[in-house]
Design a protein around this nucleic acid. Structure first.
Length: 170
DNA sequence: TTAGTGATATCC
DNA sequence: GATATCACTAAA
């Protein structure tokens, strides 16, 4: 089993997001122990035209990462207490990414990062073993269901309704 | 349903 | 420097 390489993430987020569901998210904790969880839910955020994407309001210091190379982790502190983990996908200069929304029993993006002990220290680093967090493919082929994205009503009904949330069928 | 929390962006 | 906003969770 090998970590996913950059080519995996160097695709459109609408391809990467469903492809990540069912994969194993692996985290090496500071004490050296490993945690493996199967990814059960992701969401795609695609481009400046997607008003739910952080980069939709233009390129800033914070969203700069979204315009960068694919395979880079973008971690964002939301509501002052929850870290949400994204990975950058697609071509440079095209802001898009995939949000890791849930894995196995750890439903909810905030709980997921808490369990994996992720925080801003990983922001801007590659999703690779050298960073202490990566994704493996064990050959499991999941059944997926798609749903509208969550918590982005502010983006307007036409964007909130997009079926860009990918969930592992139970 | 509501409170809590802090980084970011945007406005003085 | 000040405020408004937010891809959430837990407690009720």
């Amino acid at each position: 089993m090998k970590p996913l390489d950059d080519a995996f993430f160097h695709r459109d987020c609408l391809e990467v997001a469903p492809a990540l569901v069912g994969k194993l998210l692996v985290r090496q904790l500071p004490d050296g122990s490993l945690r493996r969880v199967r990814i059960t839910e992701t969401e795609a955020y695609r481009g400046e035209e997607d008003r739910a994407c952080h980069a939709s309001k233009g390129r800033t210091k914070r969203t700069e990462l979204l315009y960068g190379e694919s395979g880079i982790i973008y971690i964002y502190l939301c509501y002052g207490m929850h870290w949400l983990m994204n990975v950058i996908t697609g071509e440079p200069d095209q802001p898009q990414g995939v949000l890791f929304r849930a894995a196995a029993d750890y439903t909810g993006p905030g709980k997921l990062t808490k369990y994996l002990q992720l925080d801003g220290a990983c922001n801007g680093k590659p999703l690779q073993p050298e960073t202490g967090i990566w994704v493996e493919d064990d050959g499991f082929v999941p059944e997926l269901i798609t749903k509208p994205r969550v918590g982005i009503d502010y983006a307007g009904p036409e964007w909130a309704a997009k079926p860009w949330r990918f969930v592992l069928k139970p």
